[in-house]
């Protein structure tokens, strides 16, 4: 029994020595990268992660396009009113102006895929900037616990060796972190032009939809006036009050949406602006400029988050 235990002890010791030797490479790399890591420690990637995640959530919102393409369906809500109005000179009353056709479902899907691509890009950027990605502490602690549970002759020596092994293994975070910083910078700098082009066009189209919503509001309000001229309401205070109330309630629905979409456009442009700043300043290794960037990213994240909330609220109505 004792011989068997000693053999296992020796075998495990060899195993640990071998693993420790291989992990000395990681330690050396960690040391060599020390200056780089210290400098990069100033880089609060949490702000990059938060900004990216908010931008991703914003870009993923498809309601604008659905709303724009749904004008034909929306105009049907007046059909019930129109059916109650008698024809004038043999002509049936018509609803507000509506386009003859809109985009087909596959055409809409093609445009939405552009929003989805920006969202996917920002999501991946956010995931790369997440500190948890390079933290192997949990896994290493589990490994050390399991190593400690192995039957060794000398428990104290075993635990010391395992703890040292675990500490070395945790050093893998250093090269992983440097690798991650390198990849984030590479991702941002190499794709900045594409991100600028894409966000600019998405923002332009979104801004145009905001103008469309205001125009749709006007189409309903002018229709309301026109139908009132054709079918006058009784001249009394109650009817006049109701007429005004109806118009104001219609205007409020559209104004909220137009404003929310306009904020969405501004937020998209903010995403582009901050991405460009990251592309410029992340590669500079200048801690001061990075501190400024972090502050701006935090502020941009708030703006984007608010725009998204406003946008979601407007489309829940």
């Amino acid at each position: 029994m004792l011989v068997q235990a000693n053999e296992r002890d020796s075998s495990m010791r060899k195993f640990l020595v071998k693993r420790m030797a291989s992990w000395q490479l990681a330690t050396k790399i960690g040391g060599a990268l020390c200056a780089l890591i210290i400098l990069q420690a100033c880089s609060d990637l949490g702000t990059v992660r938060d900004f990216s995640n908010q931008s991703a959530a914003l870009a993923a919102a498809p309601q604008t396009l659905d709303y724009w393409s749904g004008i034909g369906e929306r105009s049907k809500r007046f059909d019930d009113i129109l059916s109650r109005l008698p024809p004038k000179d043999g002509v049936k009353a018509k609803g507000p102006v509506a386009p003859d056709s809109t985009l087909t479902a596959p055409q809409l899907a093609a445009v939405k895929s552009l929003h989805a691509l920006l969202a996917a890009y920002m999501t991946k950027l956010g995931a790369l900037a997440d500190d948890n990605l390079v933290d192997v502490s949990k896994q290493v602690d589990g490994l050390v616990t399991n190593l400690n549970a192995l039957p060794f002759a000398d428990t104290e020596e075993k635990e010391k060796a395992n703890a040292a092994y675990g500490t070395m293994l945790k050093l893998v975070k250093l090269p992983l972190n440097a690798y991650r910083h390198y990849k984030i910078k590479q991702l941002i700098t190499e794709n900045d032009d594409s991100v600028q082009t894409l966000t600019d066009l998405l923002a332009t189209s979104t801004g145009s939809v905001s103008i469309f919503v205001t125009s749709e509001k006007n189409s309903v309000l002018t229709w309301y006036d026109n139908i009132t001229r054709a079918y006058p309401i009784p001249s009394n205070v109650s009817s006049a009050f109701q007429w005004k109330k109806d118009k104001d309630s219609v205007a409020a629905i559209y104004d909220d949406k137009a404003e929310a979409i306009a904020s969405y456009e501004t937020a998209l442009r903010k995403v582009a602006e901050m991405h460009h700043k990251m592309a410029t300043e992340l590669s500079s290794f200048d801690t001061d400029s990075f501190k400024r960037l972090v502050a701006e990213l935090k502020s941009a994240k708030k703006e984007i988050s608010l725009a998204r909330e406003e946008y979601n609220a407007a489309f829940k109505k």
Binding site: L65, L103, Q107, L108, A110, V111, S113, L114, L117, L118, A120, Y121, K124, L187, E190, N191, D193, S194, V195, T197, L198, L201, S205, S208
Partner: peptide, 20 residues
């Protein structure tokens, strides 16, 4: 405008797909 978007964005889309 919407119909032209995917075409106009083709090169940027390809680059970003590779990046993702």
């Amino acid at each position: 405008g919407f119909l032209a978007m995917p075409q106009d964005m083709q090169s940027s889309v390809e680059d970003l797909q590779v990046a993702v």
